[in-house]
Amino acid sequence: MIPDLAGVDGCRAGWIAWIRTAGSSAPDLRIYSRFADLVEDLGPDAVIAVDMPIGLPDRISGSGRGPEQAIRPFLGPRQSSVFSIPARVAVEAPNYGEACARALETSDPPKKVSKQAFFLFPRILEIDRLLQADKQLRSRVFECHPEFAFSRLNNGLAMQTPKKIKGKVNPAGIAERLEVLARHGFDCEAFRNGPPRGAAMDDVIDAAVNLVIAGRRAAGLTSTFPANPVADRHGIPIAIHG
């Protein structure tokens, strides 16, 4: 029997998720303020693909964690969508200045933290604490990167148009991604009403492609990047699936 599946992305309201429960004919779009509530809402074997870094190494060598370095070559013009996440001590720092200082100490070459990455830290730690507390979740909650997911579903070809331009949703970019989702069985009529309150259209699209990857993971059709991922000090695997 196919387990519950969820494709998740962060949004202004917290977390947006396309969820396909076992036996349902169509996915359901939901908003959660806490990731733990999402996990609790699903079956005990649910497979959850989330666009958020999972697994935090103690040191960084090169341009980010292993998964970030592994997927950038596949993304062509979309490489800038892959943020470099620093070492655990930087992510756990109480403020931006401290995060930059800790990142400089634990990276080679030394590198500070981008503001874009810093704003993700509370979300990263929200999932990280869950996976530290419940080892069983580590095989079911996994990291997915939407732009890489689209390239994997598009015969290895990266999307040619951005989802956003100068902070605004780009209709051409959305249309390009909807075409890929439709080819993989996602009924694009589900997007007709636009995003729910607290989310943007690109959040809805990203959660949708993550749902497709969750289904492929449940069917054994995905790979890990890098191919032989390591785990962090808590035993949490550091890999992007696609």
Score class of each variant (00 low, 15 high):
Trp15Tyr: 15
Leu157Asp: 12
Ala70Met: 07
Ile48Trp: 09
Ala158Tyr: 05
Val141Met: 01
Phe225Asp: 12
Thr224Leu: 03
Gln160Arg: 08
Asp203Ser: 00
Phe83Met: 00
Arg59Ser: 06
Ile238Cys: 12
Glu105Trp: 13
Glu143Pro: 09
Lys168Thr: 02
Phe118Leu: 08
Pro146Trp: 03
Asn193Asp: 11
Asp187Ile: 08
Cys144His: 01
Pro73Ala: 03
Gly23Tyr: 13
Gly23Trp: 12
Asp206Cys: 02
Thr21Lys: 13
Leu5Val: 08
Gly215Met: 01
Ile19Asp: 11
Val212Ser: 07
Gln136Lys: 14
Leu56Glu: 10
Pro229Ser: 08
Asp58Asn: 10
Gly55Phe: 03
Met159Arg: 04
Gly220Gln: 02
Gly62Met: 11
Gln116Glu: 09
Leu153Lys: 12
Glu98His: 06
Lys115Trp: 15
Pro44Gln: 14
Ala46Asn: 11
Gly194Gln: 07
Pro195Val: 04
Pro77Glu: 04
Phe119Met: 14
Trp15Asp: 05
Val141Asp: 05
Pro77Ile: 02
Asn154Thr: 06
Ile236Glu: 08
Trp15His: 10
Leu157Ile: 07
Met1Val: 15
Phe186Gln: 04
Gly7Tyr: 09
Ala101Lys: 10
Leu125Thr: 06
Ala93Trp: 03
Glu105Pro: 14
Pro94Lys: 02
Ala199Met: 03
Leu120Phe: 01
Pro57Asn: 08
Asp134Cys: 06
Ser61Lys: 15
Gly235Ser: 09
Ile31Val: 12
Val89Ser: 13
Ser33Cys: 14
Pro110Ile: 01
Ala172Ser: 15
Leu125Ala: 06
Ser63Val: 11
Pro162Ser: 13
Ala99Pro: 11
Pro195Glu: 08
Asp9Ser: 02
Gly55Lys: 05
Glu98Phe: 07
Leu56Lys: 07
Leu131Gln: 10
Arg34Lys: 15
Asp45Gln: 15
Val230Leu: 13
Gly194Val: 06
Ala17Trp: 04
Ser61Thr: 11
Ile48Met: 08
Gln132Arg: 14
Lys111Asn: 11
